[in-house]
Design a protein around this nucleic acid. Structure first.
Lengths: 358, 358
DNA sequence: TTGTAAGCGTTATCAG
DNA sequence: CTGATAACGCTTACAA
């Protein structure tokens, strides 16, 4: 009963009286146990008691303290979304999908930006353990297996998105090999045989898979792989710009490393690439065709409009959230692996527009 | 001491033993109070005791349960970021700024997307009360004063970002009137007198301020305001597209509503505008000059590159987070109002490139 | 300097 | 169907 007297907390302006089940119980003339049952309709509560409780709760503008609840029932209804950088246009869509699923199901989501930095990743993971989140959706960059395992050992459900890590955890991704093959084959189909590739950071499985798809496509058509045609970027626009400059310099040195098309491992790098091309007076797609990856919403506003491999970003986030909740309720189930299919979107950067507006 | 026996929780796979201060206390041979003091270095703890505690904590891989802590000390170290849609390119940068400040200061951030929908806004606000977040950074669309007040009454610090609501709450924004004047004057300086305006949703203060800036600039140059030249959009690309189509149809009806320039209240609508223009065979900037607002990262990859009003988005988020923490520690301080200055970025959509690459 | 114990707001067990 | 009451994990007087 102490609660009743302590709930008027001195706090700046005046004092705030946050209502608790004790107050509700008092007002309704029942015990806290009854209040709890009534509010969560669990156990038996007489119709009449329930009404009184609900009425009292409303009058007092009662709002449950979910932190207190999570203390007793061991669930926080919180999931974390840990990704490299929400500023990278690929992620907001994923985040949106995850958040939508989460909030539809009573969870709220904590946002963490790691910048692909090991230190930040493990700091966040540690923090999330302290917060006792129920699950983590993780676009890993470099986290060590052990920090992930620590989470799992704490009973936290973890699912990876977009970036795989072997076979340890549930994963929601798209088929990057297939996607890269789609892109490369599209270029080959257009008659290109000298196709440059600007890859993502090689430590990422995602990047390696796309490189793999590029190589496989080449091989399947009997086109020799020329490693001088591939450059590594970091998924950011500027790196695509630099990569293209390097490729161009190389090409002009006259060592036989010319190319007529480029496949960039994501749209941002493709954008940088196109800028570099333009700066050198080269025209897309006339002189060099370019295809990107992701189909971020601005791919269609670039000029020429960017041909790219579309990933179902929103769905990835949504499904990741769904998967993480499933994992929570079934910690021992078999590993969940959701591999979505990317699709080729042909626009103007690989094919001249039928009716040029010029 | 019950705690000691209950910490081995049966949970699926096997069982997980999450360590608590009780375990640490036991292992270190001290009381929980001492553990608490040692871990938070508060109060007196002998050097020796402290070492033993720290050692034990490390061996047990102890992680504090912050939810339990917040129950006793009334602080959750959580702030919420409530915005219309993280998918709208303007917001990720703001979010990033807020998250960076927050995590640097020991807070974590909950992400909420409202879609500018009253129902979602108030549901989230209610949820955040239950979660006892310490503060809320809110890009309001339509929330009623009363739901905001309910938060404040609960002792939750609230600061608005980007979108103001009168004078009730702390706010971090940019000077929209000045920004719109910058844009309009730029166009006027280029010799345009027939300038169309595609506004944001009029219920938003932000939109009204930009319209105001547009009008003021016109007026200051003695250019008559023609309401047939302003159309309302919703900040999304598609609405900019539609708005321009309407403007064009109008213009062609020959009623004297021609224009040679457009100012769109954000970059996404500017993008839609440019597409519509292109579809009609009009050239930017030769036939129609266009300027946007926000300077989202892709403004520079559009072709022609978009002239726009840059807002310090990251800083807005950062400062909003800083402001909300300040408000927490000083609930009674005077209203905080941070008005940042936007800057004009001139690119190719208003001025022909010096050296065309064609 | 340390330990005991009350209290934070809920849920859940177990007698009535 | 209802009410005490222990327990959740931690902090903090208050004693010792």
């Amino acid at each position: 009963m102490w609660n009743l007297f302590h709930t008027a907390v001195a706090l700046g302006k005046w004092w705030i009286a946050i209502s608790t089940i004790y107050k509700v119980a008092q007002k309704a003339g029942v015990s806290v146990a009854t209040v709890s049952r009534a509010l969560n309709d669990s156990g038996y509560v007489s119709r009449e008691a329930k009404d009184r409780v609900l009425e009292a709760a409303r009058e007092l503008d009662y709002h449950m303290n979910v932190n207190a609840r999570s203390l007793t029932c061991g669930k926080t209804y919180t999931i974390a979304l840990v990704l490299p950088d929400i500023g990278n246009p690929f992620f907001p869509a994923v985040a949106r999908g995850a958040e939508d699923y989460a909030s539809d199901n009573g969870y709220c989501v904590i946002l963490c930006n790691t910048d692909g930095n090991l230190r930040k990743e493990s700091d966040y993971l540690k923090m999330l353990r302290s917060r006792k989140v129920d699950g983590v959706i993780f676009a890993v960059s470099v986290a060590s297996r052990s920090s992930l395992n620590a989470l799992a050992d704490d009973g936290i459900a973890v699912v990876l998105v977009d970036r795989d890590l072997g076979d340890s955890y549930d994963i929601v991704k798209t088929d990057n090999i297939a996607g890269a093959m789609l892109a490369t084959n599209h270029l080959i189909g257009l008659g290109h045989t000298r196709i440059a590739f600007i890859s993502g950071p090689m430590p990422l499985a995602t990047s390696r898979e796309r490189l793999r798809g590029y190589c496989d496509a080449l091989a399947s058509k009997g086109i020799p792989f020329d490693e001088r045609l591939v450059t590594e970027g970091d998924f950011r626009m500027e790196s695509g710009h630099r990569a293209m400059q390097a490729l161009l310099a190389n090409s002009r040195s006259g060592d036989g490393v010319e190319f007529t098309a480029v496949f960039a491992a994501n749209d941002m790098m493709a954008a940088g690439t196109m800028t570099a091309l333009e700066e050198e007076g080269l025209r897309v797609p006339a002189d060099v065709a370019v295809v990107g990856y992701d189909d971020i919403n601005i791919a269609s506003v670039m000029r020429p409009r960017l041909s790219t491999i579309a990933q179902p970003k929103y769905e990835m986030g949504w499904i990741a959230a769904e998967t993480v909740t499933r994992r929570m309720s079934e910690p021992d189930g078999p590993r969940l692996e959701e591999v979505l299919q990317p699709v080729l979107v042909v626009r103007d950067s690989t094919v001249e527009r039928r009716c040029a507006s010029v």
